[in-house]
């Protein structure tokens, strides 16, 4: 059966660390890092990337549009 695997790319320099993407993710993929970006924001990071299904929920709620999403079908 086919399984979907996803990946997200976060433009960390434009991320404001608002965390709205975190509850939007059904797989708990995203966390906020301790470091800050050039603007001084702690930014989002796909800490649990393996669980990502590429559902785009995080990307569509992101107010700053910093998340790009990729998805593939993998035969298991």
């Amino acid at each position: 059966m086919a399984k979907v695997k996803g990946a997200i790319v976060i433009d960390v320099e434009r991320c404001k660390g608002c965390c709205v993407c975190i509850p939007a993710c059904p797989q708990d993929v995203i966390q906020i890092v301790k470091e800050v970006n050039g603007k001084g924001y702690q930014y989002a990071f796909p800490a649990n990337h393996d669980a990502c299904t590429g559902c785009i929920n995080c990307a569509i709620v992101c107010p700053d549009g910093v998340i790009t999403v990729y998805r593939v079908k993998v035969e298991s």
């Binding site: 695997k5 996803g6 990946a7 590429g54 785009i56 990307a59 790009t68 999403v69 990729y70 998805r71």
Partner: peptide, 18 residues
């Protein structure tokens, strides 16, 4: 599967509007 194998233009499903 390696994340970098997924992050390819042909697998793009969402990006910020141009």
């Amino acid at each position: 599967m390696d994340i970098n194998e997924i992050i390819k233009p042909e697998n793009l499903v969402y990006k910020k509007t141009k």
